[in-house]
């Protein structure tokens, strides 16, 4: 177990280094010059002023140094928790901008992932033994899963937001409100949260339900299930075993899905103008804000890596077959 953890830690560490490097490199390979853009925003005509401003900004952002030094400085700053200064929201530090957005993204993602996983697996397990539910759940599941995130998001925004008027369709809270600790604000926050959450939740739900249904049917046909039934075990026990074993591939599926779900969350946020990381990524790209883009993607990378790491460990705990260092039988 210790060897396994050490190996996983090294692998995740390496992945982190590569991800951070790419994360630093890609914005620098994008066309366009952010400094030019900032200078242009100041709308000055005088060439000397422009030169001075350019020099000032380049020094501020450390862009006057050779690339390798920029790279090393980036790592050094990273360990100090300094992600640089935003170009778009100058002079706000990137770390602050990102940290403000993270709760919104986590707030829709974590409930959407967990609830869709739990509800989807339960519905799937039930569908495996109820013909009626199977006939309803399966087609609906396929339909919902096949929908792209933004398409479902748009449908929901139109149906529940515009047509029925139940929920607001944009923003994290009402534009007329100031974030504060009050019931009115919390309620408003919740109202704005429903649609983005729902669109993520629904898209993931169908996949889990279909997967679970098929796995349960497979497990119920397996040898150990037949043997238990032949020895008079009640259906409840057999299903309990089947459910537990069917969960294992689903957990792997969850690990694989995390990245995709995150991508979906980003798109969903853009549709609902929800002030999370997704919207930040879009704004950063539109404004050629290297540092903000880097910072946001860094959080995304860390999030995906952490989640995968946790799932790797959970998997070892629930499936004895993956445990290393098992002592084989001898007689």
């Amino acid at each position: 177990m210790r060897g396994y953890l050490a190996r996983k830690t090294v692998i995740y560490g390496l992945t982190f280094v590569v991800a951070v490097t790419l994360n630093w490199l890609i914005p620098r390979l994008m066309p366009g010059d952010p400094v030019q853009r900032m200078v242009a925003r100041a709308a000055v005509q005088h060439p000397e002023t422009i030169a001075a401003m350019t020099a000032y900004y380049e020094q501020t952002f450390g862009l006057d140094l050779p690339l390798w030094q920029q790279y090393l400085n980036y790592w050094a700053a990273l360990f100090r928790g300094d992600l640089g200064t935003s170009v778009w929201l100058f002079p706000a530090p990137v770390a602050q901008v990102v940290l403000d957005a993270v709760p919104y993204t986590l707030g829709i993602m974590i409930p959407a992932i967990l609830l869709s996983f739990v509800v989807g697996n339960s519905v799937g397990a039930m569908a495996a033994r109820s013909r009626w539910l199977d006939n309803v759940a399966l087609p609906v599941g396929y339909l919902v899963t096949a929908m792209p995130y933004m398409w479902l998001a748009i449908l929901l925004a139109w149906g529940l937001g515009v047509a029925l008027g139940w929920f607001p369709v944009a923003g994290g809270y009402d534009f007329g409100m100031v974030p504060q600790w009050s019931w009115a604000f919390a309620g408003d926050l919740l109202q704005h949260w429903v649609l983005p959450f729902l669109s993520l939740f629904l898209v993931s739900l169908g996949g889990w339900a279909i997967g679970m249904r098929n796995l349960i049917i497979y497990e119920l046909e397996s040898d150990y299930a037949n043997y238990l039934s032949a020895l008079g075990a009640p259906k409840r026990l057999v299903r309990q075993y089947a459910f537990r074993n069917a969960m294992l591939p689903q957990i792997t599926g969850l690990a694989l899905q995390l990245g995709t779900i995150l991508g979906g969350a980003l798109v969903t946020e853009i549709v609902f103008a929800y002030p999370g990381l997704g919207k930040l990524v879009l704004s950063a790209i539109q404004n050629q804000d290297f540092f903000l883009l880097q910072g946001t993607l860094l959080f995304v990378v860390i999030g995906v890596l952490l989640a995968n790491f946790v799932i790797d460990i959970v998997y070892v705990l629930v499936d004895p077959r993956t445990r290393t260092g098992l002592t084989g039988g001898t007689s």
């Binding site: 397996s222 040898d223 150990y224 037949n226 043997y227 238990l228 032949a230 020895l231 075993y241 537990r244 074993n245 294992l248 629930v318 499936d319 004895p320 077959r321």
Partner: peptide, 17 residues
């Protein structure tokens, strides 16, 4: 009535002691 199945190798739940 009890049974020793054809598939004794896989007759036990792999994830339970």
């Amino acid at each position: 009535v009890s049974l020793i199945p054809q598939y004794a190798m896989s007759a036990m739940n792999p994830t339970r002691k």
